[in-house]
């Protein structure tokens, strides 16, 4: 191949390879942020979307292994090639506490996700000790009593520590 032809081929290849990159720089992957990242069921969250194309409409959904709950839509506003949205949403009050993903997706297949931890509702907040669920469904305060053998062992270890400690303190 002649050098001029080779050079032209290389240049053309570089331009074609750079085109998708150029398109990507003009409009990056959409990003969403959720605030606060830990929220009580029934509470409000603010979802901020960035790096989106103005005019796009994102469907917002809360997902976990068990459920998918639609939270509505958000329209992207802005000028030029960078757009975004800010929406405030209220979560369902009957959401089970746990780890969720908030997904924003368009019909064209673009999507962004953010993690969200949901706690129990504010009405369930209390300063009491932790409980465990009995098989009957009744909550039961965590059992903290130790087996007699463990109590005896710990007492012996504490006594040995005291004796060793006093010996070390008093020896010359």
């Amino acid at each position: 191949m002649k050098p001029r032809t080779l050079l032209a081929s290389v240049l053309a290849s570089a331009i074609l390879a750079g085109a998708p990159i150029g398109v990507a720089f003009a409009h990056g992957e959409p990003v969403i942020r959720v605030d606060p990242p830990v929220v009580a069921a029934g509470g409000s969250i603010t979802v901020t979307g960035t790096e989106m194309e103005p005019g796009e409409v994102f469907d917002l959904a809360l997902e976990s292994a068990a459920i998918s709950v639609s939270l509505g839509q958000a329209a992207v506003e802005g000028e030029g090639e960078e757009g975004g949205f800010v929406v405030t949403l209220t979560l369902p009050g009957d959401l089970a506490p746990g780890s969720y993903r908030l997904r924003a997706s368009t019909e064209e297949g673009e999507s962004a996700v953010a993690d969200l931890t949901v706690t129990a509702t504010l009405y369930e907040a209390n300063a009491g000790p932790a409980t465990v669920q009995e098989t009957s469904g009744e909550p039961h305060v965590l059992e903290r009593r130790k087996p007699a053998g463990q109590v005896a062992g710990v007492a012996l270890l504490a006594a040995a520590s005291v004796l060793l400690g006093l010996w070390l303190i008093r020896r010359r």
């Binding site: 606060p36 830990v38 929220v39 009580a40 509470g43 506490p97 931890t117 706690t119 129990a120 509702t121 504010l122 369930e124 907040a125 209390n126 300063a127 009491g128 000790p129 932790a130 409980t131 965590l142 903290r144 130790k146 109590v151 710990v154 007492a155 504490a158």
Partner: peptide, 17 residues
């Protein structure tokens, strides 16, 4: 032995109790 380290209920976001 006498006072095991405390552990409360799972945290509820936004509450102050």
């Amino acid at each position: 032995l006498v006072w095991p380290a405390p552990l409360g209920q799972p945290g509820v976001a936004g509450a102050e109790v």
